[in-house]
C-alpha cells in the first residue's frame, strides 16, 4: 500500500466514524463538532484527488463559516435538558420512510457506475487546480455560474427582508 492508499483509508474511516457520531451524539454541540471533523476528512479526500481549491473552499465555507453559525445558534439554546421529549411514532415512521427513499434513489443512481474502470486519479489530474477551475467556470460554465450567483444574491436580500420585519 502506498502512502496515498493509507491516507485514503485513514480519511475514510475518520469521515464515516465522525458522520455516525454526528447522528448518534445526544448533545447537539458535540454533533456540530463531529460534523466539522467530517468536513476536514472530506477536504483531505479532495486533496488526495489533487483538487486543492475545492479542499480549501470546503474548509473556508463549511468548517469556517456555516458551522460557526451553527455553533452560534446552538450556544444560545438551553441544552441543559438532557431528556428530549420523544417524537411522535408517526413522525418516526415518516422520517424512516423519507430517509429510506433517499437511500433507494442513491443506490439506484450508483448501481450502474462502472467502478472497475473509473479509478480515481490521485495526485495527477490538474482540473482541480485553481487556474483550470477558474478558466472552466468563467468560459464554459459562465451562465450557470452567474445564475447561481444571482441565487445567492436573492437569498441575501431575502435574509435582510426577514431580518427587518419587526
Amino acid at each position: 500500500m502506498g502512502i496515498t492508499q493509507i491516507l485514503f483509508w485513514i480519511l475514510s474511516v475518520m469521515a464515516l466514524f465522525s458522520a455516525l457520531m454526528v447522528i448518534t451524539s445526544k448533545n447537539p454541540m458535540h454533533s456540530v463538532i463531529w460534523l466539522i471533523i467530517v468536513f476536514f476528512a472530506i477536504s483531505g479526500h479532495y486533496l488526495l484527488l489533487n483538487a486543492q481549491f475545492l479542499a480549501i473552499v470546503n474548509i473556508i465555507v463549511y468548517a469556517g463559516a456555516i458551522m460557526v453559525l451553527f455553533l452560534y445558534v446552538l450556544m444560545l439554546m438551553d441544552l441543559k435538558k438532557e431528556t428530549e421529549p420523544a417524537k411522535n411514532r408517526w413522525l418516526k415512521v415518516a422520517g424512516a420512510m423519507a430517509g429510506g427513499s433517499l437511500l433507494l434513489v442513491l443506490v439506484a443512481a450508483l448501481r450502474k457506475v462502472d467502478i472497475e474502470n473509473g479509478i480515481a486519479e490521485t495526485r495527477t489530474g490538474d482540473i482541480g487546480l485553481i487556474e483550470n477551475l477558474g478558466t472552466a467556470l468563467f468560459t464554459e460554465y459562465v451562465v450557470p455560474f452567474e445564475i447561481s450567483s444571482i441565487l445567492f444574491l436573492s437569498a441575501m436580500v431575502g435574509a435582510v427582508v426577514i431580518g427587518k420585519k419587526e
Binding site: 486543492q52 481549491f53 480549501i56 473552499v57 474548509i59 473556508i60 469556517g64 463559516a65 460557526v68 485553481i130
Partner: peptide, 15 residues
C-alpha cells in the same frame, strides 16, 4: 498554490 486561501481558511477556523 492556494497559499493565500490557506491563510484565509486558517483565519476562519481561529474562532
Amino acid at each position: 498554490n492556494i497559499g493565500m486561501l490557506y491563510v484565509f481558511g486558517v483565519v476562519s477556523l481561529g474562532v
